[in-house]
Structures are given as structure tokens and as C-alpha cells.
Amino acid sequence: MEYIILIISAILVNNIVFAQTLGICPFLGVSSKISSSVGMGAAVVFVITLATLVTFLLNQYVLVPLELGFLQTIVYILVIAALVQMVEIILKKVSPSLYSALGIFLPLITTNCAVLGVALLVIQKQFNLLQSVVYGFSTAVGFGLALVIMAGIREQLELQSVPKGMKGSPITLVTAGILALAFMGFANLV
């Protein structure tokens, strides 16, 4: 039960994009088509889950025992960059079809602040290993969900006549704001 609440709250109530405003750059950048947003979402789920697992273990068994907590930021970003590179290489060998489907989205993930954000948040929230991985996974699913919903709306928006001054990023931001407002409706779910 505890884990179901954790999953629901990470996906809907505390959605990483709409409630915590993390990962906005890829959210705005890759949400213009549904197909590419699904690819990006899948790549992010993969990397965040893996990155949370690795950084958690690293923090628990290396940084804390050696009292190197102040190196957290540097170590984490290096781990994430290396991890993304490694995932890219492995995928290329093991599953070329998935690799070509994810394509350019993989390298972009290094600078997705949701990845580093989740890795830092699970330490702050003092989760255990399983909780951290579940939280990382469901947060990433929430990110993918936000991306796909937004892409669906933006595909429709292209056909509408938007006031000239609001075209492009302003209307996208306002749309995201209204979506965030809708997501606030989930607030009392858990």
C-alpha cells in the first residue's frame, strides 16, 4: 500500500513537471509531436531509474562512509553523464531498433535537470533503496505522461489561430500553466 501511494503521488500529485517544475527544457523542446515525446519519455524512464539506483548506492556505500558528502554534486553529474553514455553504447549493441527509436534523445538527457533532481531528492527525502528506485521510476513515468499530454495539445494548437504576440513559446507556457492547474486537482488524492 505504501508503494502504491508513493507511485500515485509521484506520477499525479507531485508531477515532476507540473508541480515541481523540473525538466522544463526537454518538456518545452520535445513536446511538439506525440511520437517524439513518447521516445523521449521512454528514454527518461530508463535513465532516471538507473541513475537513481546507481547514485543511491554510491552515496550510501562510498560518499557517506568516506565523509565526502560535499562532493555529491560533482560525483552525481559525472555518474549521470557516464551512465547516459554507457546506456547509449549498450543499446547500440544489444537493441539497435530501440537505439534508433530513442536516437538523439539519449545524449540530451544528461542536461535534463529531472535526472539530477530526482537523484538529489531521494537523498533529501531519506528514502531506502527500494523506495528510491520506485520513486525514480514513477517520477519518470509522470514526466513521460506530462510530455505526451502536452504534445497532444500542441498538435491541436497548431491548427488554431493564436494571437500574434502569443505565438510559439508564450502560448506553450500558458497552456502548461493551465495543465498544471488541472493537475492541482489531484492534490487530495493521497
Binding site: F18, M166, S169, P170, L173, V174, G177, A180
Partner: peptide
């Protein structure tokens, strides 16, 4: 969060 998106949208415009 919703206010952040909306105000930024209008500010950018």
C-alpha cells in the same frame, strides 16, 4: 507552479 508558467508566458510575450 501554475502561476509560474502563466506569468512567464505573458512576460515572454
Amino acid at each position: 507552479a501554475p502561476g509560474a508558467f502563466i506569468v512567464l508566458g505573458f512576460l515572454v510575450a
